[in-house]
Design a binder for these strands. Sequence first.
DNA 1: AATGAATGAGTATTCATTCAT
DNA 2: AATGAATGAATACTCATTCAT
Lengths: 210, 210, 210, 210
Amino acid sequence: MGIQERKEREKERRRQQIMVAAKRVFSDRGFNKSTMEDIAQEAELSPGTLYLYFKNKEELYASLSLRILQYLLIRVEHVNEEEDSGPEEKLKSLVDAMYDVYEFDPLIIINMFHLQSSETLKNLSPQLMSEIKELSRRSLGSIAQIFKEGVDKGIFVDRHPLALADTFWSLFSGVVLWLTSKKIIDEKKDYLKQTLDVAFEIFTRGLRKT
Amino acid sequence: MGIQERKEREKERRRQQIMVAAKRVFSDRGFNKSTMEDIAQEAELSPGTLYLYFKNKEELYASLSLRILQYLLIRVEHVNEEEDSGPEEKLKSLVDAMYDVYEFDPLIIINMFHLQSSETLKNLSPQLMSEIKELSRRSLGSIAQIFKEGVDKGIFVDRHPLALADTFWSLFSGVVLWLTSKKIIDEKKDYLKQTLDVAFEIFTRGLRKT
Amino acid sequence: MGIQERKEREKERRRQQIMVAAKRVFSDRGFNKSTMEDIAQEAELSPGTLYLYFKNKEELYASLSLRILQYLLIRVEHVNEEEDSGPEEKLKSLVDAMYDVYEFDPLIIINMFHLQSSETLKNLSPQLMSEIKELSRRSLGSIAQIFKEGVDKGIFVDRHPLALADTFWSLFSGVVLWLTSKKIIDEKKDYLKQTLDVAFEIFTRGLRKT
Amino acid sequence: MGIQERKEREKERRRQQIMVAAKRVFSDRGFNKSTMEDIAQEAELSPGTLYLYFKNKEELYASLSLRILQYLLIRVEHVNEEEDSGPEEKLKSLVDAMYDVYEFDPLIIINMFHLQSSETLKNLSPQLMSEIKELSRRSLGSIAQIFKEGVDKGIFVDRHPLALADTFWSLFSGVVLWLTSKKIIDEKKDYLKQTLDVAFEIFTRGLRKT
DNA sequence: AATGAATGAGTATTCATTCAT
DNA sequence: AATGAATGAATACTCATTCAT
């Protein structure tokens, strides 16, 4: 391993360290209430150091989103590659994948939502932004592929696969957001898994042709 | 009409004037990018005046949410009161009601989501907060009532009515949020209504017992 | 005096108050070492208030320059309007005017120099910038007019009046800057008036045709 | 050549390398907008290395000034050593020398001016500061010597030679600064040489006794 | 009741300088 | 000697909120 390579690895480790801290702080306080100072403290670094690895606060935040999207894409593509599964089985695997993604980082939904603000996107480097767009597009496309297979085989109702993919994703993110919200308002917990189960069950039933 | 009462009415009118302005500004720029100055200007009032009617920025925002929730509750209760309708018809009316609520104020979803931030809730007066909680609870309860009827009559699958209500609400808010988000990222438009139709159709199909 | 007018006057007074404080602080420490906090303190105001009257630090600084330029232009035009004076007398009056301008605000030279930085001009509002340019142009034009008269009457050497005006201004500003600089390096004082006298005397002699 | 000496020479070469880079960067962006990082990059060194050769940013900047002053002194003393020239010829040579100095480093004027800031001088080592003072004093003294000769021989007007030297230097630096400034404000160019010619011509004429 | 000028705490970002390697 | 990653103090600017009029 050359010096160059070792340095590269060290640098990547630092980036990860910062992202882990940022994730914790952003999760706790949300984007606007989190300060770079907070994140620096959490990472046991100085504020200045953060800027050696991320152009600005927005880009640090977006980098978190990118990481989740990457994980999401990998999982979804993996589902699509299951050779022996039919559409129904793949849909089930997809639901499992979504659980995993959520557990990998519960922030995923809020991240995705945050990216909505056009103001936000102003400070993102074009490169990072196009990466995010691309990943988002590919993930959804991959999900749509599963539905297309079901539709083509006459197993799922004949609707546009992308509309089905949007519905699937909306159902997932809607439940997560809504229950996260309720958790705080009503102080209830752990209702999430059950509701997700009910939601996906009904969705799957509704999807079947007969 | 006594002087007292006339004053009260005048005060309420002012509140409404401010809320209308606030809704426009918040819709445009989102909560964090909107300044009290902006809202005051939109309402053709001075910043100081806003504080005569609302304790702070958070409370002004939450008041908007409250108004939408009130409208939501009225619509949903109205659906429940339809004497001659069966569960399927009521579900259909409910979907129509959701469209109306969304058109009454597209911010509804984002508002609901904003309330999630625990930081936010710190600045809310206990009274306003309990009103919001109560309305939220009653609206959901009223939605659940529709599902309960369907379940009881053996028309809908036998799941907990509140879980069904949560799913219904999640599906609606998820679609709105997700497509709002996509609109900006992918520059597409008007896909919302179609996707909502597909989503609710599948949900309704999935809900039926056979 | 109407309320509107009184308010306008009050506002102008505040602007002046801030400019006086800014002038003191900038004189003391120079542009870069002066903080808005310093100026606010000197003006016995809060930092935020400064921004109610000036868009940013650059614009506050440039406003000082503008004021001096206005004074300069008035003085120089006044010289040009002397009916009974010949070019020599006007040149003498011009020198007196320059003394006055310097005493009105010794910062004038440094201000003019500061405006040189193209970086600086980026933050100026186009309006303020064009005002400064215009005043600068007119002042120099007015000075050139004096020289033109002398040249036309065959009293001054036949050189381009604008070049003579530039030389005159350069001599003045050069002496001020250089001696200001020396004052600090060598801790000498009061040498300025003498040197300016010598400088202008030689310039005037050199200007005469024979 | 001993090892000690070779090291010394190597060290001096590095210093020069840094100063060349610094001159380029400072010329481009001015003192405040230039970062040590910029200079290090231009010199193809790391920021840390700069501090091995210069105590701080101020001292690096002042070292540039010192170098120009050294060049100035050499040129001026050379003029004084012209055996067969009379005061008028020497004055002409002096003007040529000033052109050369300016071309050697156009920053000279701005450098000299920068040293004015008393804040700046706080960070200079006493040694460097006294060197600069000394060089400045000797250069001016050498210029004054030329004027003294002219005054003594009855060729130049009878004024204090040092005052004449200050005037001469002020005229030169004033023209350079003023036209540099105008170049940016009015977008004109190449007017410098002409104006300097006019300025020095008038100065020379004004200096002659009759 | 209404105003709107004033406040001042809060924060992202920069960059000269240091120091472990 | 040279590096360059890390530091953290410094600062322009914003904006929710107050309060004298």
